[in-house]
């Protein structure tokens, strides 16, 4: 007999609902129930950060969050970073300009982790940026261009969060 959960949460500013297994991974709910395939699966065990999303203001690995714990939550995925009209966010623009993406498999997670770092407002020193993305693995870039991208975005004035599809989270470390 399969267990079910009537899940309702806010994803990138929109209310979404689905009937899922309570231990279904938020990663699978986003990709399969909601068609939001920007969030990637790398390792499936919390090591790589490809599945990074922002849940109630905090960076999490969507592969480790059961649906039961996303009930009523506010989630931002990589699809929620651009403006509502599709204009890339300053961070996405910086990734384009600095060559922050090569094969691209880590990029959605890097963008989400990078955005959470920028939202916190801490000075974008090398050490601080590297700590913020320490849970995100990249097999291609050697990280320097990703760090450059996040630092460039930190130096760019950000549009007010209301203009982003996702919802800005509170707090800082």
């Amino acid at each position: 007999m399969s267990a079910t959960l009537e899940l309702s949460l806010t994803v990138n500013g929109e209310t979404r609902t689905a009937t899922v297994a309570p231990l279904a991974r938020l990663l699978d709910v986003l990709r399969e129930a909601f068609g939001l395939t920007g969030t990637k699966e790398g390792c499936g065990e919390g090591e790589c950060g490809a599945c990074s999303v922002i849940l109630d203001g905090e960076l999490v690995n969507a592969c480790l969050v059961p649906a039961s714990q996303a009930q009523g939550a506010v989630v931002t995925t990589v699809e929620g970073l651009a403006a509502r009209d599709g204009t890339p966010s300053p961070l996405q623009q910086a990734f384009l300009e600095c060559g922050g993406a090569q094969c691209g498999i880590c990029t959605p997670g890097m963008l989400v982790a990078g955005q959470r770092f920028l939202d916190g407002g801490a000075p974008a020193t090398d050490a601080a940026v590297r700590e913020a993305i320490a849970g995100n693995l990249c097999r291609c870039t050697g990280y320097a261009k990703i760090v450059d991208s996040i630092q460039r975005a930190a130096a760019t004035p950000s549009p007010p969060p209301g203009e982003r599809a996702g919802v800005r989270g509170p707090g800082d470390r």
Binding site: P22, E45, G46, C63, L64, V65, P66, S68, Q69
Partner: peptide, 25 residues
């Protein structure tokens, strides 16, 4: 189940899955 950073990994890897009958979240 608390934050799930150990238990979700064990569940996905099917480690001891047969011993889990019910989860208290």
């Amino acid at each position: 189940l608390a934050g799930g950073t150990d238990l979700m990994v064990q569940i996905q890897a099917r480690v001891g899955l047969e011993r889990i009958g019910h989860i208290l979240d």
